[in-house]
């Protein structure tokens, strides 16, 4: 029986030289770079909005940008590209002739995607700080050099975003198992994002049941609607964990019983 770590590390190695790896790096750096570029051009307007510490404003701009569509599509694309490595190279048949249980293959793939998403948020932090200071050096009027970012809030946002991501991760892993053609899961995500916009525009509280809105609900300050907190997490993040559990089980069932990689 193959040990857990070697077979899990193999899943990480598989993205070497692939677009999935570049997507993690690009995804983590693109939003802070874009926000820095906007701030560079509209610095005069931003200076007026700064009260004391400019970092919360820079943080809000970055996180709102990340949360609305960006992170959802990052995760959807990442899952599709990651599973497409096996489809494109016709390697599912090889994976299933290795002395490793199908269930273990599924768990390894699920954990690998979670690790990739965590890496995306962890990489976002240094990129965001570096670009913030770089912006402060170019535009001293923004006072980013003379103040420090709230790292606790930064990591708390990362933590809540990862929890919110879990529902979409499990749903899209299941979709990638069901459909070989990656256009179908991407199309589904586009449709769900349109529904999400409609729910937000309509001010519907039912948005708390909609996984594609969880990123925005997690970082929205002030909160989009009054939401009770159960323990350390708001209601919608518990729902995210619930979706994660249900779709992980569904994916496990499909993968271990029916899946052959030929669909």
């Amino acid at each position: 029986m193959t040990g857990f770590w070697p077979s899990f590390l193999v899943e990480i190695i598989k993205i070497k030289n692939s677009f999935a790896k570049w997507l993690i790096l690009l995804g983590a750096s693109l939003m802070p770079a874009f926000v820095a570029f906007v701030a560079l051009n509209k610095w005069k307007q931003l200076v007026k909005e700064i009260h004391d510490n400019p970092w919360p404003l820079f943080s809000e701009m970055s996180w709102k940008g990340m949360a609305f569509f960006y992170s959802v599509f990052f995760i959807v694309l990442l899952v599709c590209l990651y599973f497409n490595i096996e489809y494109k190279n016709n390697t599912w048949k090889h994976v299933f002739t290795l002395p490793i249980k199908k269930g273990q293959v599924y768990v390894n793939k699920l954990l690998a995607v979670v690790v990739f998403v965590v890496c995306y948020y962890i990489l976002f932090v240094p990129f965001w700080i570096i670009l913030g200071y770089l912006l402060g050096a170019i535009r001293p009027q923004l006072q980013l050099i003379t103040h420090t970012p709230d790292l606790e809030l930064l990591f708390l946002n990362c933590f809540h975003s990862v929890i919110s991501s879990l529902s979409i991760i499990a749903i899209h892993i299941w979709l990638s198992i069901r459909f070989k053609n990656m256009i179908i899961p991407i199309g589904f995500a586009v449709f769900c994002s349109i529904v999400m916009v409609a729910l937000f525009q309509g001010g519907a509280e039912e948005v708390k049941y909609f996984p594609y809105a969880y990123h925005y609900l997690s970082i929205s300050r002030p909160p989009f609607f009054h939401e009770s907190k159960w323990g350390p997490l708001p209601q919608h993040e518990w729902y995210s964990l619930g979706y994660f559990f249900v779709f992980t089980m569904l994916g496990y069932w499909d993968f271990t019983r029916k899946f052959s990689g030929n669909k």
Binding site: K88, N89, N90, T91, W92, H94
Partner: peptide, 11 residues
């Protein structure tokens, strides 16, 4: 070795 070899072409 079944049909064409199953290889990760990015590696």
């Amino acid at each position: 070795l079944v049909e064409q070899p199953s290889l990760y072409e990015n590696l």
